[in-house]
Design a protein around this nucleic acid. Structure first.
Lengths: 337, 337
DNA sequence: GCGCCGTGTGTCAACGTCAACATATGCGAT
DNA sequence: ATCGCATATGTTGACGTTGACACACGGCGC
């Protein structure tokens, strides 16, 4: 900076004023300074700036290492939005939900230079880790609400699950089986509860949900159990990957999708349309979630406000893995469970 | 820090020594200082540290916004390794390869506080953007070598493509068709050339490769063309997603996989094993790539050395989408192209 | 003609840390 | 007894930036 000041024949303070477009600077002076900056390739030193101002213009993201596709997209959206707003993004990966691992992430983040934190970790996993979120730093949660002690942003899980369930009922299925996500997951819980409520609202008894862990493998395992029961004609899987596993299980047994069994997923994986058969799914919009999370955090940073953002809604994308049940419906299916 | 020093009855310098475990500090003094830090919840200020030392203990990653699954995994591995080494990770997303967008990313990164940069962008896209990589900052490339002007880390694309191609030939197929990735992609080019060379080394004429863009949709389009030709019995797709599309195209036409046509992918998507049929694929190890990239960068940072890391090799995972051709091979297939 | 205000620019100090140097003590070797 | 060295701690200044304040100039209103 000093060099620039000398080159332009002004004081350092004036250079600072030009850079920050703050205070009075004569037009001619401004031009000279800008020239000098150009010539010398001057870049403000962010460390000094941060030291002086106490602001880093960076936000931290704490996220699970092996994260779902949706969360990856969310991260991406967060990065894009942050960068648009002139903020850098510092990523703190967490490898497991072990207590000290998560706590360690917070510690690292406190030491590192961030003005606020976005946490993209399932609420239940947070609870389990018994982590107290450090205060002093604004925090926004994604994919959880954790007692609403902090602003949170999320997909409208309940609405999406309702769409999927109603779609299958409307096609004429007697009821809808559910392959749920892991017990610890907040999203999984919301999807499961909404599925159950939707069935009950229609006066249908909800079968016992099967437990998965988001992986295609766990969907396959669930499918193996479901296919033993001839009464199963409609399955709503809590994500697309598990839906893939369910499809595989039925296919292996020679059952047709959607002829014998309809399957609906949740997420909107980009390749879901190219699967065989193309998968009916609930399309999420992680990019909106990410952008909203950044906006919410910046609002907290600037205003100290804590406006709750609305949930991001989903759409049902009907493809070829769901259809009306075989006419066999004439003879009402046995209702096990 | 001053508060801690007062609390412990020592000078700030001594606190600094305790924190950094540098220089001589008496055992009793150290304990007192540590106590005081604990009580006061002292955290060193990274901005001041960076200002003083010129080091930020952060590395920047420039990466495409809509990146492949493999790159996401790589990013994740980079984050984990960086964090192990006590470095923070600053993520700079690039939305398109438009020249000013990429250049803007570099500019942002220069202003932001990083000690080095890892670039996870296809080399050809970099070239196209005509970006000159800023010097002064150590750089490591992933997924490209760009004339080897910088250290680079990558999967051994050629070895992987050879494994896939030889596998199909060894099963008894006369030749192997190829669905390539986008022309701009360095990885796609390597995989294509290696496929071609492997065929030629066996004295087989390589059919014209089909052009895809990594997406399952493009694989489907390629599959539509391939299925018109009855001579096609073996297809090597440059990634798993395109393989999925190829499978769908054949299936829709009532052709059996692997009965009529064998399909092999590349990547090792976690769900490839759960597809129907489970997909034979070349397993990559993006987590190794990411870790190596960080190590290479830190080596450059510390030593100024520029040791080239070896390519990360792949393994063929044989599943049910590939098999020997139907006995029809007795009557040699017509060789179109 | 005087003071006031808006404009344009410079000086100084401080942000928190740490390298360099200065100081101080004790112990063994000469 | 003296010196040298290892150990242990304090003092000072500088990293690059910017807020607070001071200063200088010209035009305006009374």
């Amino acid at each position: 900076m000093e060099d620039v000041a000398r080159e332009a024949g002004v004081s350092g303070q004036t250079v600072s004023r030009v850079v920050n477009a703050r205070g009075y600077v004569g037009a001619a002076t401004r031009e000279r300074v800008e020239d000098a900056m150009q010539r010398l390739g001057y870049r403000p030193n962010s460390a000094a700036r941060a030291l002086r101002s106490g602001r880093f213009r960076a936000i931290g993201v704490i996220m699970f290492s092996f994260s779902s596709y949706g969360n990856q997209r969310t991260l991406d959206a967060i990065a894009v939005r942050a960068s648009q707003m002139g903020y850098a993004l510092t990523l703190i990966p967490v490898e497991s939900s072990a207590r000290d691992t998560v706590a360690g992430a917070f510690r690292r983040l406190e030491e590192h230079a961030v003005d606020g934190i976005i946490i993209v970790i399932e609420a239940h996993q947070l609870d389990e880790a018994e982590v107290e979120i450090p205060d002093g730093l604004p925090v926004v949660l994604v994919d959880s609400n954790r007692g609403a002690t902090h602003p949170f942003v999320d997909t409208d899980q309940a609405q999406g699950a309702r769409l999927a369930t109603e779609h299958l009922l409307d096609l004429g299925h007697h009821t809808v089986w559910h392959v749920a996500g892991p017990a610890k997951s907040y999203s999984a819980e919301r999807r499961r509860e909404s599925w159950r409520q939707t069935l009950e609202a229609r006066g249908v008894v909800a079968p016992e949900p099967l437990q998965g862990d988001w992986s295609a493998e766990s969907g396959y395992q669930a499918g193996l159990r479901l296919r033993k029961d001839d009464g199963v004609t409609a399955v709503f899987a809590a994500n697309d990957q598990m839906a893939i596993g369910v499809v595989r299980a039925f296919r292996e047994a020679g059952r047709d999708i959607p002829g014998d069994v309809s399957v609906v997923g949740f997420d909107g994986l980009p390749d879901a349309a190219q699967l065989w058969p193309p998968l009916t799914t609930v399309q999420q919009h992680p990019e909106k979630v990410g952008a909203l999370a950044v906006d919410a955090l910046l609002a907290e940073l600037d205003g100290g406000e804590r406006a709750q953002t609305p949930l991001v809604s989903t759409e049902l994308v009907v493809r070829q893995s769901s259809a009306a049940p075989r006419s066999r419906t004439a003879a009402p299916a046995s209702h096990p469970t």
